[in-house]
Design a protein around this nucleic acid. Sequence first.
DNA 1: TTAGTAAGCTTACGTCGTAAGCCTGTCAAT
DNA 2: ATTGACAGGCTTACGACGTAAGCTTACTAA
Lengths: 231, 231
Amino acid sequence: MSRAVKKRARAPLTRERVLLTALSIADARGLDAVTMREVAQRLGVEAMSLYKHVANKDEILDGLIELVMSEMVVPSPESGWKAGLRAKARSMREVLLRHRWAAVLIESRVSPGPARLRLHNAGLRVLREGGFSVEQAYSAYLMLDSYIYGFVLQEVCWPFEPEERPDVAESLRPAIPPDEYPYLVEAMNFVMTRSLEQARRGVNSAASYAAEFEFGLDVILDGLERASSVS
Amino acid sequence: MSRAVKKRARAPLTRERVLLTALSIADARGLDAVTMREVAQRLGVEAMSLYKHVANKDEILDGLIELVMSEMVVPSPESGWKAGLRAKARSMREVLLRHRWAAVLIESRVSPGPARLRLHNAGLRVLREGGFSVEQAYSAYLMLDSYIYGFVLQEVCWPFEPEERPDVAESLRPAIPPDEYPYLVEAMNFVMTRSLEQARRGVNSAASYAAEFEFGLDVILDGLERASSVS
DNA sequence: TTAGTAAGCTTACGTCGTAAGCCTGTCAAT
DNA sequence: ATTGACAGGCTTACGACGTAAGCTTACTAA
């Protein structure tokens, strides 16, 4: 009889199903909720069964990185290095905001999976074909990635919808006497009034810091252009 | 009798001693090695005794953040915003490289401790007194911090002395076929030959990526200058 | 003298990753 | 048709972790 049909009800466990389950747990309840036992339970299986398809938990984490990385847009040099890198940056931010746990995970382990390598290679290529020297391309790429990850990391540390933000700020206020930190309070007030306004207009929470992100992105891309043409 | 003298041999446990012990463990063996039992043992005490001085482990982690943050140079506006922020950036990088575990910790939790608040306040102040509007200052500060943390995070992910680096690169090579990732390999070769040269010249490992860091820092500071004077 | 209290200790619970080995259904070779 | 290997799941168990609950001791204030 054809092997595809006669199998028992439960779908066969595979490495891919393990990783996808882990991904959905992480998205729903955070990285800490990704537990061998929890992943197993969602698959209707015992924890130790996972080890037939995955060496250990670290391999699951590396797999998660790969899954996230493969969602990112790979830039192509066709429309110029600036447009390519801008698209890559925006895509990275979107993906990392969609998987809020991912940025810290990525930045806390070296895992040279294919998706990650492909992304790096494509980014460097765009710069090289845009006329950057090897050294320039390396510096520029490192700088851009630093900014992107750094920005998103700060963004996900403040993990609230615009309309919740003022409440959180309020709860923090006792720790922040205005006379000791006047400039900080000034900035906080600015952000909070804008958050309130955004909440009223129903602005998507992901778009909330988009202006700041784009500002920094422009500064960097323009700066790189200047630096490359000067040399 | 004076209370300071008659105490038993063991120095009294205090919150500060707990935090300093945790700090030295983290520096020596990484953040994962910071365990209630381990901290206690180093103090010649049982794990549960720590709870008389700290609420829980999270409070220890927040305490570590504060200790690290208080090592960072607080910028003063005297010599201009550019010099002030450059000094702050360099100092932050130095401190974060000295405590390689700190960057991920800081970026993965919101802990508004006084040292952190002071640093933010001072940074924003420098920008405001340099003529930036509230909004500009906020964007600029966010951008700079993003870059700094992002850069150092990548730096500590590659946690090796210059002379070890080529070996590690070699061990990674099988995963990276040159024909699939030519631009990546090109960049890696560049970095590796430079690392070898640095190792030969005995360059301090912390200084190793200093050139890239300074490059990005210049791009950002110059870009901010332009952005602020245009508006 | 005594009652209160702060600081350290003991025991124990539930959760985690995972080592070791068992059980059973499938399939290829005899 | 029989058998034997083996892949894929299960069971049990261990040591490490954070920490709740409650005990003991020793100093202090009345």
